[in-house]
Nucleic acid binder design. Structure first.
Lengths: 190, 190
DNA sequence: AGGCGGAACGCAATGACGTTGCTTTAAGGT
DNA sequence: ACCTTAAAGCAACGTCATTGCGTTCCGCCT
């Protein structure tokens, strides 16, 4: 399981976790990925390396932890008054953030140090949550909306696949195209 | 660039490369991922560790190299006489292989030690090649077939997304469903 | 066919990293 | 306020990653 599920959430443990996460972000910004090492992070955080090894296991799991936190959406998707507009805006922003070099790095980190797949699942859950918010809003308006799984398959999955497996640049028009496909699909629930 | 693009393809270099790759496969099968370390691989391959470090950089790049080789399809997709049958059979087999624990491990390895994304691109190119073979066969028969990119977006991408980001098990019915969607989509070229 | 340049490998040393047992601290419950 | 116990500090050890230098052998050119 993920080390973030702390049995002792308060006080020193929380301070250490925050200090370590901050140290990772700072060192990454200052010196780049190459200089990121457990002893370096520990020194910056004012902590001994063994603490990091015990709590996170290794550098990859720590980076995965930090990456997932960075991939968490900070606010619900903006409301443009109609399903298509909401989905299009969200997909464009999602693609823009995820396809950027830092975004790609976070995604890779999140996938990388993740033995049981829980961190990757968390990322997917974040995106699914945003999508569900948009779809629920549409249903509230009386619009017809496809199931969330359909949007995940037709919009999110293709974007992530191209981000991960293809070096080509991705455009906002591609996001629009995927939204078109998803909204044209029949509302099946399989 | 990938180290597989050897400037000196013949003789000793080739023997070393093959010995190292074989050593990785053997050790992985015998002792699992945990015991896989550069010195161990080097010892099994009858090579000094520095050789591996020089040629591949680190363990991740070596594993990525081996993983890509394993993900290469060994034969063209089987011909069932009709587009839907061909696509369905191929998607089922693809999902079965990729979603298995070893398949997931190879995918992760391929993505992991891949600074410039060339190995991941190679994986995608393998799948795209198989898909294009199926589609070309369909066009030869006089069938109408969607563009390859559509199939990649609607069939391959969702499968890979779920494999990577969701822990849930995946079924052959899911592959069938994706093929249905792809074949129902309008033949647009965007 | 034979020699030549250069790339790749082997060897060995070094410094950093990952790992672990024991001790110390402090959080949370009684 | 004490007591329990999870979590962090400390320190030492083994292993791994990295690099300079000498040697081998591939590929090519005459």
């Amino acid at each position: 399981m993920s080390p973030k599920a702390k049995a002792r959430p308060g006080g020193r443990s929380a301070r250490v976790q925050e200090a370590v996460h901050a140290a990772v972000r700072e060192l990454e910004a200052e010196q780049g990925r190459a200089k990121l090492t457990v002893p370096a992070v520990a020194a910056r955080a004012g902590v001994t390396p063994s603490t990091i090894y015990r709590r996170w296991g290794d550098l990859h799991e720590l980076l995965s932890d930090v990456a997932v936190e960075r991939l968490r959406p900070e606010e619900p998707p903006s409301d443009h008054g109609a399903l298509r507009a909401d989905l299009t805006a969200w997909a464009r922003q999602f693609l823009d953030e995820m396809a950027s070099p830092p975004g790609r790095a976070y995604i890779r980190d999140a996938l990388l140090g993740d033995p049981d797949g829980s961190n990757a699942g968390q990322c997917s859950a974040y995106a699914a949550g945003q999508v569900e918010t948009i779809l629920a809003r549409a249903l509230d308006r009386g619009e017809t909306a496809p199931p969330a799984d359909t949007v995940m398959d037709l919009v999110v999955a293709p974007m992530m696949y191209r981000i991960l497996f293809r070096p080509d640049p991705l455009t906002a028009e591609y996001a629009d195209h995927l939204v078109d496909t998803a909204l044209a699909a029949p509302d099946e629930s399989a």
